[in-house]
Simulated assay, not measured.
Amino acid sequence: MVSKKLYYACDLVDNPKLIEQYKRYHSKENVWPEITKSIKDSGILDMEIYIISNRLFMIIEVDETFSSERKQKMDAENPKVQEWEKLMWEFQQALPIAKKGEKWLPMKQIFKL
């Protein structure tokens, strides 16, 4: 099995109470099981999200079946994922360079040792 890693960034609304609430939603015991299932079903093998201040950084490890387009289509057709995404928009805000409706933007590697 071939896997690769992809990297994304997103911002949160710069409000300490909302940031703490967002972190609670993402704790292992609070993430909706339908969300973790949809993530795995899309070909994502592993996912990590890091935070500093209100900036989020996500690393996903994907298998050969994963494509961003397929994941977007699957998410659009899943009512529970749509409910989750609507809820998360209460906490997230697009990066300044994002187009309308974009939040998690892919990052490009500029250095590797």
Rank of each mutant, 00 (worst) to 15 (best):
residue 112 K to M: 09
residue 29 E to Q: 14
residue 61 E to S: 07
residue 60 I to K: 03
residue 57 F to E: 07
residue 70 R to G: 14
residue 92 Q to K: 05
residue 80 K to P: 00
residue 69 E to Q: 10
residue 110 I to F: 15
residue 64 E to L: 01
residue 95 L to N: 05
residue 75 D to T: 02
residue 98 A to E: 03
residue 91 F to Q: 07
residue 81 V to Y: 15
residue 46 D to S: 13
residue 20 E to Y: 01
residue 29 E to H: 09
residue 85 E to K: 07
residue 107 M to S: 04
residue 64 E to G: 02
residue 42 S to I: 00
residue 92 Q to H: 06
residue 86 K to W: 04
residue 86 K to I: 00
residue 33 P to G: 07
residue 35 I to A: 06
residue 80 K to F: 12
residue 39 I to Y: 12
residue 94 A to Y: 00
residue 110 I to Q: 11
residue 104 W to N: 04
residue 32 W to L: 07
residue 31 V to W: 13
residue 107 M to Y: 05
residue 10 C to Q: 06
residue 95 L to F: 00
residue 81 V to I: 04
residue 18 L to M: 05
residue 66 F to E: 06
residue 97 I to H: 09
residue 18 L to I: 02
residue 19 I to T: 10
residue 42 S to G: 07
residue 62 V to T: 01
residue 91 F to D: 09
residue 22 Y to N: 09
residue 20 E to M: 02
residue 88 M to Q: 12
residue 66 F to S: 03
residue 8 Y to F: 15
residue 70 R to D: 15
residue 105 L to I: 01
residue 99 K to N: 12
residue 46 D to Y: 10
residue 56 L to D: 01
residue 13 V to Y: 02
residue 3 S to C: 04
residue 113 L to E: 12
residue 112 K to N: 13
residue 1 M to A: 13
residue 44 I to K: 07
residue 15 N to R: 08
residue 19 I to H: 12
residue 2 V to C: 03
residue 53 S to G: 12
residue 24 R to D: 15
residue 75 D to Q: 14
residue 3 S to E: 11
residue 51 I to G: 14
residue 48 E to G: 02
residue 58 M to L: 10
residue 56 L to T: 01
residue 5 K to E: 09
residue 92 Q to S: 12
residue 7 Y to K: 03
residue 15 N to E: 11
residue 14 D to S: 09
residue 50 Y to A: 11
residue 89 W to N: 11
residue 17 K to R: 14
residue 52 I to L: 13
residue 38 S to P: 00
residue 62 V to K: 02
residue 22 Y to G: 08
residue 69 E to S: 09
